[in-house]
Simulated scan of single mutants.
Amino acid sequence: MKVLVSPMSIAEAIEAIEGGADIIDVKNPAEGSLGANFPWVIREISELARKHGKEISATTGDLPYKPGTASLAALGAAVAGADYIKVGLYGVRNAEEAYEMMSAVTKAVKDYDPRKKVVAAGYGDFYRINAVSPLDLPEVVSKAGVDIVMVDTAIKDGTALFDHMKIDDIQRFVKLAHDNGLLVALAGNIGWGHIELLKELSPDIIGVRSIVCEGDRSSMIKRELVVRLMEAVQG
């Protein structure tokens, strides 16, 4: 189980790298759950992280159902240096729209560099934003050529993924992903009390920010908290 940590600046990226995170995920919490950062920030963090042998992820936003916009944003993240390109299916209402959206994104990214990984991100609290259910995603995004399917939370109000999805449904999500040849990532205000449960669920990746920040998710990532998390996950 790899640990993905989401810095929003060079200073935070250094903390995440030196704390031992597996994947450095460039995002901008000010613009939402999967808020996009600027291309020059992605590029600068990518250059730094590669020197330390780290993989780079970048979010492209909590996106509306606009396949053209999504594909252009995804290509921008790929060109800026991201190895993993994450697309938040915020305004996507059903499986058909998810397929169209992710087909466009995958074509844009893979035509540029087939080694890049495309991540389709649904939301555990989908019912609060009238979005597609994560359980409807694995089969259709696999057909669209996606590499990884993820579930996060859309509304950052202190609740966690486990407050919005039943354990059985998360287990089913993981199984559906793996059955469709996808890697699976879980995120959404993961806390210290969730680590053992996550080990049982066995996703390929867990995504975090708040748990390794000195305060709330808008505060600074601290390397000692990243170290603590890596020890908990690997222990």
Rank of each mutant, 00 (worst) to 15 (best):
D83Q: 11
A36E: 14
D25M: 12
D125Q: 01
L72E: 14
K175P: 00
A30S: 11
A160M: 06
V92M: 01
L197F: 03
A187C: 06
E196T: 09
L225V: 07
L198Y: 12
P114G: 00
A58H: 10
A58C: 13
V226C: 09
T153V: 15
G124M: 08
G91I: 00
P138D: 09
G81C: 08
R223I: 01
D204K: 12
G88L: 04
V109F: 04
D216L: 09
D169T: 02
M8E: 05
I148E: 01
G20E: 08
N37E: 05
T159V: 02
E55H: 13
A177P: 03
E12P: 02
G19L: 04
K27D: 12
I129K: 09
R209G: 13
I17T: 03
T159S: 14
G122M: 00
G235Y: 03
V208T: 03
V208E: 13
T159I: 01
I85F: 12
D163C: 06
M230H: 08
G32W: 02
G191N: 03
N130W: 01
W192M: 04
G193H: 04
A16T: 07
V79N: 05
V149M: 10
D25L: 07
M8Q: 08
E139P: 01
V5I: 13
N94R: 04
I190N: 08
V92C: 04
K143T: 00
E96H: 08
N94V: 14
P7K: 13
L183N: 14
M1D: 10
G188S: 11
V146N: 01
S218H: 14
G53Y: 05
G81P: 04
A70V: 03
I148H: 10
A108D: 11
E18T: 12
S133I: 00
V119M: 10
L201T: 15
P138Y: 09
V233I: 14
E97W: 10
V184M: 01
K2Q: 06
M101Q: 08
A108T: 04
Q234P: 00
V79G: 06
V146E: 13
G188H: 04
F38I: 12
A120M: 01
L135Q: 11
S210K: 10
A108P: 10
D216W: 03
F38W: 12
A160I: 00
A74V: 14
E96F: 01
T106E: 04
V3N: 14
I45R: 03
D168C: 03
P134V: 11
A154V: 09
A185F: 01
L135H: 12
E224S: 10
